[in-house]
Amino acid sequence: MKRLLLAGAAAALLFAAPAQAQSPDKILNSSYDIARELFAAINEAFVPAYKAQTGRDVTVDQSHGGTSAQARSIAEGLEADVVTFNQTTDIDFLVQQGFVSEDWQSEFPNNASPYYSFPSFLVREGNPKNITDWDDLARDDVEVIFPNPKTSGNARYTYLAAVAYAKEAFGDDEEKIAEFVGKIFDNVPVFDTGGRGATTTFIERGIGDVIITFEAETRSIAREYGEDSYDSVVPSVSLLAEFPVAIVDRVAERRGSQELAKDYLNFLYSEEGQRIAATFGNRVHDEKVTAEFADQFPEVRLVTAEDVFGGWDRIQEEHFASDAKLDQIFGDR
């Protein structure tokens, strides 16, 4: 009996254990789910660089997951000092909840997006169907793979990029735009729920002629499954996808980690940070690094959600809300 009581007491103690001693030598970076290796490399470079600069030993912990879920966790008390997301809207959610200051996009350069990417194509070796641009995706003999835009943020970018292309091709003829995008949707044999599922469909099940996902991800897919078996194809025009970063002010203030958080995010803009991001297939702003990687990153004209669609609020309203344009195109499929 005594032993049982002891075990109970120990358990009770464990549950009552206070949060880890708060030390500003440690920050938590909450990030999107496919950035594990990127930030492992970033952190490995940041720690010694920071030590050389300030003499302080610091640790950066990482949490990865779908960014909507990550933002939710932070709102529920996950003590992340910084967020490095792949969707602006999830940081906006943290703004609404009072965790991130409203002017976060002006706190760091380039709309607080240290690197960027865009929907791009990965085709099978030698590009047998000769797919070079968005209009090829609407051809009758092409099978296209991308996940369900209702459930995948990645696929929403694909959808918007296709619409952006169609807008340029057909002007404001809404009917033609819907028809064009509808044709592409018709060419998708399976809509997986997420990017990873779509990759499995394309690679392991061998379905489809082209998979559409962020350019950075086409690189990691090729790296994992064989550079020789797949070719990256960059379309003539695509939609800028920002990878926004922000300090979670409410957590950082509570923990006194603002300065370290700021230095960490600034490191992403340093030459070294930019080079690491580029190694993982992301496009960067640093001119020197861009020049170094010029042969890996073909020219592409990128349009922004702001310019083409008038911002994310309007996109949500006109395209992604129930019964809006996406539903109308996607409805019967």
């Binding site: 549950f15 009552a16 254990a17 206070p18 949060a19 880890q20 529920e76 996950l78």
Partner: peptide, 11 residues
Amino acid sequence: SAEIQILFALP
């Protein structure tokens, strides 16, 4: 405010 972390920790 009591510095007890239940969620996002072992408990």
